[in-house]
């Protein structure tokens, strides 16, 4: 009995609920005769394309700016780079990497500007960053209307501006997913995607162990300790914010290629929340995170969503039950983390 209690304590009550729910979904999947290989393929893709967005949470939490609710800032930079890559017809895997490269300067600039704000609002980062993210999305809505893109395939045939949804078939639809993809027992394994994601995880993992990473970690874990050891806390927060923004930009490009289209205008508005929820489910807290948390969380959260969709559809064909489940789970876990955060301080 005591060991059960201990397990609940170390693992966290909401995480157990999510595991139980995931288990239930898997059982339901078999009961409802939902094609298993297809669902697993879906799972793998969803995990892969969401991983980098979740990784973007790592630098912020390390450096003590908390969960980066301003992820849409990076996402908008990524989208802008994506649009440029489409405008100039960059295709295939090369196109994807080109888009990633183009996004970096935008993200660095935006991240730097935003970090200047973050360093001035210590203690209220989460609230400010949420609304900075929101305002950037709204501002870029105007941008998508006004920016001088001219490629006929991406702008509206009549009227101004870019289309709301741009299908990537012409350029790099699922290029990474299909790269080296193999099929085992009917499950499509997107080797290319997994390799790229693995590379990103490895780089971030190495970064966390590096001189700079350890400086950042100290700045987040104990700013006074950092200062006493000659670490410039504000600079670390700046670097972390820039890094997070860059990862947000790259993340959305990987997401879009795997998803098959870019979604502009209001689509990025809420994209920070699933990423945050994923790392929290993986066991991160607003002040502590590891790559393991990111990977485990993304796997659990995205598989849950991937399996919930067909299960929900076969139970209740109308309405979007899986969307509702996503809302409840992702916001529930964030609320739980927030209430824990204070508990730890007391």
């Amino acid at each position: 009995m005591a060991s059960v209690k201990n397990m609940i304590k170390t693992f966290g009550f909401p995480r157990l609920i999510i595991i139980a729910f995931l288990g239930l979904l898997i059982v339901m999947m078999f009961v409802l005769h939902i094609p298993v290989p297809l669902t697993f393929s879906q799972c793998l893709v969803r995990i892969g394309i969401n991983m980098v967005l979740a990784l973007a949470m790592v630098p912020g939490i390390m450096a003590g700016t908390g969960m980066n609710f301003a992820l849409p800032l990076g996402i908008e930079c990524g989208l802008l780079a994506g649009m440029i890559s489409l405008q100039y017809n960059m295709k295939g895997v090369g196109g994807i990497f080109a888009a990633m490269l183009i996004s970096v300067p935008f993200s660095v600039l935006a991240g730097w500007a935003y970090s200047q704000l973050v360093n001035r609002v210590k203690g209220s980062e989460m609230m400010v960053s949420t609304y900075i993210g929101f305002s950037m999305v709204a501002l870029m809505c105007i941008g998508w209307l006004m920016l001088p893109f001219s490629n006929a395939s991406i702008v509206w045939p009549i009227g101004d501006g870019l289309r709301t949804t741009i299908t990537l078939e012409e350029w790099y639809d699922r290029a990474l997913n299909n790269l080296f993809a193999i099929n085992i027992l009917g499950v499509d394994i997107p080797i290319g995607l997994i390799l790229v994601i693995g590379l990103f995880c490895l780089v971030i993992w190495l970064f966390m162990k590096s001189h700079l990473g350890l400086m950042m970690k100290a700045a987040g874990a104990n700013p006074n300790f950092a200062k006493a050891n000659g670490v410039k806390v504000d600079s670390m927060r700046t670097v972390a914010t820039i890094l997070s923004t860059v990862l947000g930009g790259i993340g959305i490009i990987i997401y879009a290629q795997g998803f098959g289209f870019y979604q502009l205008y209001n689509a990025p508005l809420m994209m920070a929340f699933p990423a945050i929820a994923a790392v929290l489910i993986g066991g991160a807290t607003p002040s502590r995170i590891s790559i393991f948390n990111v990977v485990l969380g993304t796997v659990m959260f995205q598989s849950m969503l991937a399996i919930a969709t067909p299960v929900a559809n076969s139970l209740i064909p109308e309405g979007n039950l899986s969307e509702v489940v996503r809302t409840i789970v992702s916001n529930g876990i964030i609320l739980y983390a927030l209430s824990r955060m204070q508990g730890g301080k007391r």
């Binding site: 609002v121 209220s124 609230m127 400010v128 609304y131 929101f134 305002s135 709204a138 501002l139």
Partner: peptide, 15 residues
């Protein structure tokens, strides 16, 4: 945009 920006600015100013 104005709606979000007003809140962002007010929060940032306050912080």
């Amino acid at each position: 945009f104005v709606c979000y920006a007003v809140i962002a600015v007010a929060l940032a100013l306050h912080a």
